[in-house]
């Protein structure tokens, strides 16, 4: 499976971020970020710790307010400015978010976590078949189904976080550092799942520190440096860019 996909080139814009600024108190974390995600793409945002990657995703899903700029989402229900919506309304528009650090509900079972992923959906039969399908993507979760999520290992928790986000059947999935803290073998597995998710018709915006794998999987990429977009282009362009190679790929790529 290679990164390029047939839909990638021609799809219309699903998400348009323009001039986005986010402030935490007096500190500005994003200074006017422009970014576009087209239908069917995997777009990745790479950058160092503290570059503002997580803040960008949190602003898109309404967890932090925008201090300026716009976040336009062209969903099935038409176009909306996400900055005016509350987080649960953004989820209802088909934007899923698997947050950094997994953030699974450790006080609930695996089954309950997955059920909450489908919280806004009422079509029980469809949810059941979706669940069965998602569990084939993550067989370990099937084994742990009735267990408390707090007892899962780090890798299993990451899978649960992704599976839970998929249960809402998002048209756009925001993934924050899915490979963080995982063993190399699991990292490969996670990226395999990311490709599968796209092939099922979900568009992905992926924030990663593992630039090599992210660029391998993505169609297009943005490099975020201290709150601004420093570089952008197709993933293969950026992967061969000398600066990206030196700073993010360890220079030996």
């Amino acid at each position: 499976m290679s990164g390029a996909s047939p839909q990638a080139a021609g799809g219309g814009a699903l998400l348009e971020v323009a001039g986005l600024r986010v402030r935490y108190g007096v500190i500005e974390a994003l200074h006017g970020v422009d970014l576009v995600v087209r239908r069917g793409e995997i777009v990745t945002v790479i950058g160092a710790n503290g570059a503002g990657k997580t803040t960008l995703l949190k602003a898109i899903s309404g967890l932090v307010p925008a201090a300026g700029g716009s976040i336009r989402h062209h969903g099935e229900q038409g176009t909306a400015e996400l900055g005016r919506l509350r987080p649960h309304e953004i989820v209802a528009r088909g934007v899923g978010h698997a947050p950094e650090g997994r953030r699974i509900f450790q006080n609930l079972t695996v089954r309950e976590n997955l059920g909450l992923g489908a919280y806004l959906r009422r079509d029980r039969a469809a949810i059941e078949s979706e669940l069965a399908e998602i569990l084939t993507l993550f067989p370990r979760l099937q084994e742990r189904f009735a267990q408390n999520a707090g007892t899962l290992s780090g890798g299993e928790q990451q899978m649960l976080a992704m599976a839970r986000a998929l249960m809402s059947r998002p048209s756009l999935l925001l993934l924050d550092e899915p490979s963080l803290g995982l063993a190399p073998k699991l990292v490969r597995a996670i990226f395999g799942v990311i490709r599968t998710i796209r092939s099922r018709g979900t568009t992905l915006l992926l924030v990663e520190q593992n630039a090599r794998l992210a660029l391998e999987a993505a169609d297009r990429a943005y490099v975020l440096e201290t709150g601004s977009v420093a570089l952008s282009g197709t993933a293969s362009e950026l992967a061969s860019d000398p600066r990206v190679q030196r700073v993010y790929l360890g220079g030996d790529a």
Partner: peptide, 9 residues
């Protein structure tokens, strides 16, 4: 915060 990402009001 995480609950709101599930679509919970």
């Amino acid at each position: 915060e995480t609950a709101s990402l599930m679509g919970i009001d």
